[in-house]
Design a protein around this nucleic acid. Structure first.
Lengths: 200, 200
DNA sequence: GTCTATACCGAGATAGAC
DNA sequence: GTCTATCTCGGTATAGAC
């Protein structure tokens, strides 16, 4: 009851850095509590703004999620170079690139994965569809042998796997191990489904 | 507007198979739309009962989720036999047992995974903690070499991976491929992190 | 014990006043 | 740009009918 509102950061006049502060708080909430677990009202309270302002800016809760996921790079651009290289070490290159790209943005990835898994129709999860259409299609062209498409999809499963453990569940020691160390062990495992070491 | 309520299955007198019907509908909703995406009221409507009845029976939405996850077997009992066998083919045994156990209950697993990932604190996800404490601990005793605990956790990541693709996202062809086929390709990949084929 | 009716509170979306 | 109603929906607790 000391002041009407405004908390934590009254400085900088009345400057409209509200938008950025909202995004900061939202990123934190979404990564920590998932999409469903996060409340517009709670985010607004912590950011020191009115709940409706968020809807005003981003067009609702879903829009806030999208705005939160703005990245300094385009995930899709990372794919072709990885596929271009030698097939022998495609596995390590996949994990390495994946981790290098997402490690600095684990909150974003966590929020994305948790949101797609949290609710809605499995068939229409954007992240998964992207994986299906782009990555699997690209991988299938690179590998040969029986059940190529099955094996390509299994490689995706492995990527979703580390992401779940490293970014969402944050199980140690995987969560804080250096990306290079993880790739050294995990890469060969992915390689095994892409280019099996023995006939089956 | 034909009758006051009661739809789809008016038969069997007024018997109190309501409890079972609620669970059926709930399983379907939870698997298809996740925990947050499912609504008690919608489930009640489809089951032809009053929303409060669900809370009355199961003590709320969370209780309904728990009741939904009753299984004809205890997941923990499956672990020791798998670990007991030969280390050489631990990988295939892991996937095979995992898929054989959960394939008949993919709706349950989907609901469980989606619920734990959907909201709440990552650190306190029961399913993940179970994986951490029981499986990782067991695996670590079986394998040797550097980074044993890291590699054990990576094996868990792989299991979460297929479960996500096969049960939640339901990507083809992994979703409907026979478990035996999946295990044939995926098992060796898990084996690679447990007992690497080369020094690293 | 089984079930319904009602009311309460929090949440997101929207319209409109200042 | 900011804030105040207000609407609707969803989960929950309570009372009480059968």
């Amino acid at each position: 009851m000391t002041g009407p509102r405004k908390r934590g950061r009254p400085a900088a006049g009345s400057g409209p850095d509200n938008r950025e502060r909202i995004l900061e708080v939202a990123r934190k909430h979404l990564a920590a509590k998932g999409f469903a677990g996060s409340s517009l009202r709670a985010i607004a309270r912590e950011a020191g703004v009115d709940p409706s302002l968020i809807s005003h800016y981003f067009g609702g809760k879903a829009g806030l999620l999208v705005a939160t996921m703005q990245l300094p790079f385009n995930p899709l651009e990372k794919i072709p170079p990885v596929l271009a290289g030698d097939v022998e070490d495609l596995g390590v290159r996949l994990v390495t690139t994946f981790l290098d790209a997402w490690d600095p943005h684990r909150d974003v990835f966590s929020a994305l994965l948790r949101s797609t898994f949290g609710s809605g129709d499995p068939a229409s999860m954007p992240a998964v569809q992207m994986a299906q259409n782009v990555v699997v299609a690209g991988l299938r062209g690179k590998i040969s042998g029986p059940d190529a498409d099955l094996r390509a999809t299994l490689a995706i499963a492995q990527l979703i796997g580390i992401a779940s453990i490293r970014y969402v569940a944050r199980l140690e020691p995987v969560a804080s191990a250096p990306a290079e160390l993880v790739a050294r062990w995990y890469g060969p495992a992915i390689q095994e489904v892409l280019t099996p070491s023995a006939d089956r």
